[in-house]
Nucleic acid binder design. Structure first.
Lengths: 254, 254
DNA sequence: CGGTAAATTTTCGTTACCGATCAAAATGCG
DNA sequence: CGCATTTTGATCGGTAACGAAAATTTACCG
């Protein structure tokens, strides 16, 4: 293999892992002139290996599920802040369940600052995020993968979860009714969530305030089964009474 | 929320899902002048939300596991070709096991062209890739997630896999000895692979020719247990005899 | 060692993008 | 409605990146 092939292969790697590389930074990296890099990436762009842009090159997006990625960015700011708050309440060395939801994926990110945790999840993304930390023991629940949000559901999943008993359950939700009922759309996911709650010593509900008042079909449980609610702002006066009666600690980010 | 906030949020989404966006394409998309887009992305770049480059903006890489991503691009070309070849030998409607390995992840990509498949895997990435296809039923095996390659391993994984019996096993490997022994580095992964092979009617070994002669510690099995070998070029004369004796069909890409 | 081809650097005129500035338009608010 | 503020558009000189082509170096092979 020639030096040229090796360089082009490495360019491909660099562009792939940084998503964008300037001509100049590549020229520096290989100690060649920008011209040489231009020739490389122009030819690679013709082969469709990378995408050429003015000033550099980007990886050609091979990603299948853009719909999900788009949804994931919605309300990203508040989700991040909620996640940070939750992470501050999880002690080092704890064991956790984390279920489905984009907010929970942000929680997983926020938890990466911890040294040592034991995490059991039915969310493919959470498993993948947490696996990055050497100090974590990550366990994925087996079962059918739901296409919509990469959640794992089904009877096998419930059986799997029932094998464990952990310190904290991190739960997301699709909606909260005026009477404090926690609601979701998929009864299979609800059954998994119930198994998670009943096998955890404490349950944290993580959801942005917009979910309060949102309608969903399947009843998951009630606020009184929750120990703490983490949200971006207080959900509003309608829920003040039911939250107080349910004896839920409320933590608001910001 | 103002029109400006909405536009910036959407810019963030577009940049995130396309990894790079030019000023002009964004200006077209929002029907504003490039100046306006420049202002937007310059300010967002100051906040650290995106990365500014000459001619456009790229997503700031939040990715944790660059080491794995780098490795994944190695030999990408031949892996893709092997994967394509494998996909051509899998009939519509079949049920499959797919285990760990970057080549197998490419197989998962290649299989997306199929309409309907039932896929059971202990590889987080394969599950995620296959979940994109509405016609697929994807099942992830439960167990401990290995940090190195997002494989799921352990006793629970073996039990889970033993629940199924499928048409095809798609198997990757770390090395093949001169005597035809299939070798791997992790005995826990080997035990999962053995469970997969014994619960499949046919086994396909997918590996590039560079693995032939590579050393590894744990014996997984022997070429004679394999029905077909998919590779990028014939492994060489040293293996000709053992392959013939093992009665393995060899398919070489290109 | 010499000759040939491939790869890289150098040079230079051209094009595309940039930021600053100011004017125009939209928006918000009493 | 009218004023203040924010947001957007237009202009322009300056700079960075571009491709083409020639010159130079490197790699290869007998």
């Amino acid at each position: 293999m020639g030096k040229l092939d090796r360089r082009r292969r490495e360019i491909l790697e660099l562009v792939a892992s940084n998503s964008f590389m300037t001509i100049d930074s590549l020229a520096d990296h290989f100690s060649v002139t920008p011209q040489t890099i231009r020739r490389d990436i122009n030819e690679m762009a013709e082969e469709g290996l990378i995408a050429r842009y003015h000033g550099g090159a980007a990886s050609v997006s091979t990603t299948e599920n853009t719909a999900y990625q788009d949804r994931q960015v919605l309300n990203l700011g508040s989700k991040r802040e909620i996640a940070k708050l939750v992470a501050e309440h999880i002690p080092e060395g704890a064991s956790l369940f984390i279920n489905i939801g984009t907010t929970n994926e942000e929680v997983a990110h926020a938890l990466l600052g911890h040294k040592s945790l034991k995490i059991i999840t039915n969310n493919l993304h959470v498993a993948e995020i947490c696996a990055a930390n050497q100090g974590f023991e990550v366990i994925i629940a087996g079962g059918v993968v739901r296409q919509r949000d990469f959640g794992v559901i089904g009877e096998a999943t419930i059986d799997f979860i029932n094998q464990f008993k952990v310190d904290y359950a991190i739960i997301g939700i699709s909606g909260v009714d005026e009477d404090g009922s926690l609601m979701d759309f998929d009864y299979r996911e609800v059954r998994v969530a119930r198994a998670i709650i009943s096998n955890a010593r404490q349950t944290f509900l993580c959801t942005d305030a917009s979910k309060f008042g949102r309608r969903a079909m399947v009843r998951l449980g009630h606020l009184s089964e929750i120990d703490a609610l983490f949200t971006d702002r207080h959900p509003g006066p309608v829920w003040s009474d039911v939250i107080r009666e349910a004896d839920v600690s409320v933590y608001t980010a910001n």
